[in-house]
Amino acid sequence: MSPSASEIDDEAALWAVRIDARGLEAEDDPELKVWLAGDPRRAGALLRARAAISFLDRGRALAGATPSIERRGHSRRGLIAAGGVIAALVGGGIWKLRPQRLDTGLGEIRRVPLADGSMVAINTSSALEVDLKPKAREVTLKQGEAWFQVAKDTDRPFVVAAGPVRVRAVGTAFSVRRGEQGDKSVGVMVTEGVVETWVEGVDAPPRRLSAGNMVVLASTTPTPVVESPADIERSLAWRNGEIALDGESLEEAARLFNRYNSRQIVIDDPDLAKERFVGLFQTNAPESFASAVAATLGAKVSVEERAIRIGRAQAS
């Protein structure tokens, strides 16, 4: 007879406490690997339990309280007591917690598991708020860009709000990006499944986007849905800390690198700025990009404290 969901939650809570206490990872413990392999529900339960611990720790930190669960030397009684608290949160009380604020600084990229089993990858200089409710999962993207891998739950749709734009999914993966500095456009790209998107206040039915589709919603005027899986994968290379160039101008490439780095790339020559470039680079390595431009186009590179200047080499 297979274990009940509540039994799995109890076991997951105990494993979560052990991982939190000892820094234990699944690949390092044969018992945990066997337990995870024994039932497909266990991985999600463990993810929720670990998210519950992070909520507990965050709540204690905000309250200035001393954590009651120590990092070292748990007794079995302590493990069971802590596991019971976490299991209770996972089983029903976690949805009553306050919305979770997530943000990134310049050049920072984060992957954050959510308490419902979903995962969000957050790009540089971004901010969002996650509110998991009993009947809905709501995310507000305040600035920047995020990619969501949504755990399927037909009773609680997953909706991302970016200004007036809304994107709704049940179990799928997609990204949402807000424009910068007064640009009110919102870009939506779907990597798995199907989403629906619409603009609040606009009398029009939701538009369906499937995997490989992308759309930019810039105003109340309808915009075409573009099918381009390859462009989507390149655009989302930031999830691996990379910038993938496939014929972008040097001006556009510089703008992409400048999103991640305080030392900004400056293209001094207007004609050089129009040159096209291809390559795969690390987001935090603008110097490598500048060196590749110099080698390929015969450009001159000057590295300063706050800028990397790229210009035409002087004729000898």
Results as ranks from 00 to 15, higher is better:
residue 120 V to E: 00
residue 68 S to D: 09
residue 80 I to F: 09
residue 103 D to T: 10
residue 76 R to Y: 10
residue 103 D to W: 12
residue 138 E to N: 08
residue 87 A to L: 09
residue 69 I to Q: 06
residue 121 A to E: 15
residue 123 N to G: 07
residue 114 L to N: 06
residue 144 G to K: 12
residue 122 I to N: 00
residue 112 V to W: 05
residue 78 G to H: 10
residue 74 H to G: 11
residue 59 G to M: 12
residue 135 K to W: 02
residue 76 R to P: 06
residue 91 G to E: 07
residue 97 L to S: 10
residue 142 K to F: 10
residue 82 A to T: 10
residue 55 F to K: 08
residue 93 G to V: 06
residue 53 I to T: 00
residue 53 I to D: 00
residue 63 A to V: 06
residue 134 P to T: 06
residue 67 P to R: 04
residue 71 R to H: 05
residue 100 Q to A: 04
residue 75 S to F: 06
residue 102 L to F: 07
residue 93 G to S: 13
residue 70 E to Y: 05
residue 105 G to P: 02
residue 123 N to P: 06
residue 148 F to Q: 02
residue 137 R to G: 02
residue 60 R to C: 05
residue 69 I to N: 10
residue 101 R to P: 07
residue 61 A to H: 12
residue 85 V to R: 14
residue 144 G to W: 10
residue 118 S to L: 13
residue 71 R to Q: 05
residue 126 S to G: 12
residue 135 K to Y: 04
residue 126 S to C: 07
residue 52 A to T: 00
residue 93 G to I: 01
residue 64 G to I: 08
residue 54 S to V: 01
residue 94 I to M: 14
residue 131 D to C: 05
residue 52 A to C: 02
residue 86 I to Y: 00
residue 70 E to F: 09
residue 96 K to D: 13
residue 103 D to N: 11
residue 124 T to W: 10
residue 84 G to A: 08
residue 120 V to W: 02
residue 106 L to S: 03
residue 132 L to M: 12
residue 131 D to Q: 05
residue 147 W to Q: 09
residue 116 D to L: 13
residue 124 T to Y: 06
residue 89 L to M: 13
residue 90 V to G: 01
residue 81 A to F: 11
residue 145 E to K: 12
residue 63 A to Y: 10
residue 129 E to M: 11
residue 135 K to I: 03
residue 130 V to K: 01
residue 131 D to A: 14
residue 64 G to K: 10
residue 55 F to V: 08
residue 74 H to V: 09
residue 109 I to N: 05
residue 66 T to C: 03
residue 94 I to W: 03
residue 114 L to W: 13
residue 129 E to W: 07
residue 61 A to L: 12
residue 97 L to M: 11
residue 111 R to N: 10
residue 61 A to C: 02
residue 142 K to Q: 15
residue 130 V to R: 04
residue 72 R to Y: 11
residue 133 K to Q: 15
residue 116 D to G: 08
residue 67 P to V: 01
residue 102 L to E: 02
residue 131 D to V: 02
residue 75 S to L: 06
residue 110 R to M: 07
residue 53 I to K: 00
residue 52 A to I: 06
residue 119 M to P: 01
residue 53 I to A: 05
residue 61 A to R: 15
residue 115 A to K: 03
residue 115 A to F: 03
residue 95 W to R: 14
residue 60 R to Q: 14
residue 108 E to W: 07
residue 116 D to R: 03
residue 149 Q to D: 15
residue 103 D to A: 15
residue 145 E to N: 03
residue 64 G to H: 06
residue 121 A to N: 14
residue 80 I to W: 02
residue 118 S to K: 08
residue 62 L to A: 15
residue 103 D to P: 03
residue 133 K to Y: 08
residue 98 R to A: 15
residue 123 N to L: 13
residue 74 H to P: 15
residue 97 L to D: 01
residue 129 E to R: 12
residue 109 I to F: 06
residue 130 V to L: 00
residue 126 S to W: 07
residue 112 V to Q: 12
residue 116 D to H: 13
residue 67 P to N: 04
residue 99 P to C: 09
residue 146 A to K: 09
residue 120 V to P: 03
residue 143 Q to H: 11
residue 115 A to V: 02
residue 76 R to W: 07
residue 135 K to H: 08
residue 111 R to K: 12
residue 87 A to F: 08
residue 80 I to T: 15
residue 121 A to P: 01
residue 144 G to H: 13
residue 85 V to H: 04
residue 127 A to G: 14
residue 92 G to N: 04
residue 115 A to T: 09
residue 140 T to E: 08
